[in-house]
Amino acid sequence: MLKNYFKIALRTLIKNKTYALINILGLSIGITCASLILFYVEDELTYDQFNTKHEQIYRVVESDHSDPSAVEYYGQTSPAVATAMKNDVPGVNDFTRVYQPGGHRDILWNGDKVQVRTYIVGEANFFD
């Protein structure tokens, strides 16, 4: 029975090539878009979930308005912003600063020298 269904489907695909191509292309684009949207939403909803107080974590960003037609946002600010926010903004309990320097670094890992291309430096209270 299943063999018959495949035969009929194959004959229909061969007979109506353009229609079959449009259907298969549309289905593949739809599945790809749905998957990408799902991955994006899942990534956004699970951001900072490693921390037990993830609902209390906020990120301070800096915006560049030098070109009004294309405002850019950066995940970095001046180091003094964190201290000023803790002192001046009620509700800020603690802060940590992270920095992603450029370039390569050599580190020792289990006695072997390993070159690291991308890394982030954080303060000691990052996981607090």
Rank of each mutant, 00 (worst) to 15 (best):
M1K: 07
M1Y: 04
N4P: 05
Y5I: 09
Y5W: 08
F6G: 06
K7W: 01
K7S: 01
K7L: 02
K7P: 02
I8S: 08
T12D: 02
L13C: 05
I14R: 02
K15W: 06
N16K: 07
N16W: 09
K17F: 08
K17M: 05
T18R: 09
Y19I: 12
L21M: 04
I22Y: 05
I22E: 00
I24P: 00
L25A: 09
G26W: 02
L27T: 13
I29Y: 03
I29A: 01
G30I: 02
I31A: 05
T32K: 01
C33M: 01
C33S: 07
A34Y: 05
I37W: 06
L38S: 06
F39V: 00
Y40N: 08
Y40S: 07
V41T: 13
E42H: 07
E42T: 03
E42D: 06
D43Y: 03
D43F: 03
E44R: 14
E44A: 09
L45M: 09
L45K: 12
L45A: 09
T46E: 08
T46Q: 11
T46W: 10
D48A: 13
D48R: 14
Q49G: 00
N51S: 04
N51W: 09
T52V: 14
K53F: 07
H54P: 05
E55D: 15
Y58V: 08
R59I: 07
V60Q: 11
V60P: 01
D64V: 04
D64G: 03
D64C: 03
H65T: 06
S66D: 07
D67V: 11
P68N: 05
V71F: 07
V71L: 03
V71W: 08
Y73K: 09
Y73S: 03
Y74M: 07
T77V: 10
S78Q: 14
P79E: 14
P79I: 12
V81L: 07
A82I: 02
M85A: 13
D88L: 04
D88V: 00
V89L: 13
V89H: 10
G91N: 14
V92I: 15
V92G: 12
T96G: 05
R97N: 13
P101K: 13
P101E: 07
G102C: 06
H104T: 15
H104W: 12
R105V: 15
D106R: 12
L108I: 14
L108D: 15
W109M: 10
W109P: 00
W109L: 10
N110Y: 09
D112S: 15
D112Y: 15
V114A: 00
V114R: 12
R117L: 04
T118F: 11
T118L: 11
T118Q: 15
Y119I: 14
Y119S: 15
G122D: 10
G122I: 07
E123A: 12
E123C: 08
F126P: 00
F126K: 15
F126Q: 14
F127Y: 13
D128N: 11
